[in-house]
Amino acid sequence: MEESKKLEKKDESEQRVWSWGAGTEGQLGTKILQDELFPRLLHQPSLSSISSLACGGAHVIALTSAGKALSWGRGNSGQLGHGEIVSNALLPKAVMSLDGYFITHVAAGWSHSGFVSDTGCVFTCGDGTFGQLGHGDYASHCLPVKLSCFVDQRVVQVACGMRHSLVLLKDCTRTQVYGFGSGKRGQLGVGNNKVKSVNFPRVVNGFEDDEIVGIAANGDHSAAVSVDGHAYTWGRGFKGFEDAHLPHCLNSSLNFIKVTLGWNHALAMSAEGEVYMLGGNHPGVLNISPPAKHLPESREVNLERVPGLDGMKITDIATGAEHSVIVTGKMTWGWGEHGQLGLGDTCDQMSPVTVSLGYDLNGAESIKVFCGSGFTFVVTIPLILLKL
């Protein structure tokens, strides 16, 4: 047999992870407690097989392709899940108590974390003073604890906001979303404006027969996307609008596939690779005209297409507290105080600006972006080529 006909696998590129922005609590994984104004390539062997990341207030959770969870950064409330209170952890460390599970989804809030296994179990740890861990009390935990109320059900996703959490359940016939934690701005979606906090999961109403396939939480906001491309938001009203205590479907004919949330804004990506923004005129959204005045009872959200992206197909989006990142040349904008825009300075940007990673990404199969409160991560997935 001729050698030229033998199949050989070869890695044309290695997986790479970059981070920048706020780093004074170890969240960048650089081993240094300082902000980084430019993207910095991490040299961490433990991050060589990352499939996803979750970025919170000042901590990060990484999910590997082998179903393992790693965490680092601020750990003052037990949100790292290592069984102890630490001011910060400089290096990724495995969440050992979950070793018996294959983890498929992770989430990071301001000071709490969530984990979902392939068997449908959901675990939470960290700050529980608002009931955001969902265990029926207001206790905090340094190790991930399984939510007993879902023991006979299948959880597929978890999302963590500032002080609240969402979980997405799926069975053979339907999906359901549950919320718990702080609810004073309506972010739990229970339809009661007198609910201040809930320490046990309660079902989110308002989706009717729509099948939800994705959930998101940040700040006092919540969001969901359905299989039919409908996008829902609820919780704290975007600038100029009142709070919504039930999910509100965006008034659009677009087919949305992803929604990400900041503290005062949101991004929504369509199946066609277009990106739209929700919110008013402030850093993190864009320098657009503020929404027109609405009647007090109005809950219509101002939806605008991000300008300057004509002819570009967006492949991923992420939002931090007050900044945004999209993948099509890795553009960023918004609040820049900690260098989270990756442009080498601490200036705000009111329109998308391209970030240079100092590396040719043409060989990357995919590029994923993740944002925390004042910091940014980029992960590339290598392209494996088969050669004769």
Rank of each mutant, 00 (worst) to 15 (best):
M1R: 05
E8H: 07
E14F: 06
E14N: 05
V17T: 03
K31I: 11
E36L: 08
L37I: 13
L42V: 03
S49A: 10
H59F: 09
L63W: 01
S65H: 09
G81I: 01
H82L: 14
L91C: 10
V95R: 01
L98E: 07
D99Q: 11
G100V: 02
I103M: 06
A108H: 04
D118G: 06
C121H: 10
Y138F: 15
H164R: 12
S165K: 06
L166W: 03
L168N: 02
L169R: 14
T173A: 09
T173Q: 06
Y178V: 07
R185I: 00
L188E: 15
L188A: 12
V190K: 04
V203W: 08
G206W: 00
I215L: 05
A217G: 14
H221P: 14
V225G: 02
K239A: 04
D243N: 14
C249S: 12
N251I: 15
S252L: 03
W263G: 14
G273Y: 09
G284C: 10
N302D: 02
N302V: 03
P307I: 00
G311D: 07
M312G: 04
T319Y: 00
H323Q: 07
M331K: 13
P352F: 05
G358L: 04
E365L: 08
I367F: 01
F370I: 05
T376F: 09
T380Q: 07
L383H: 14
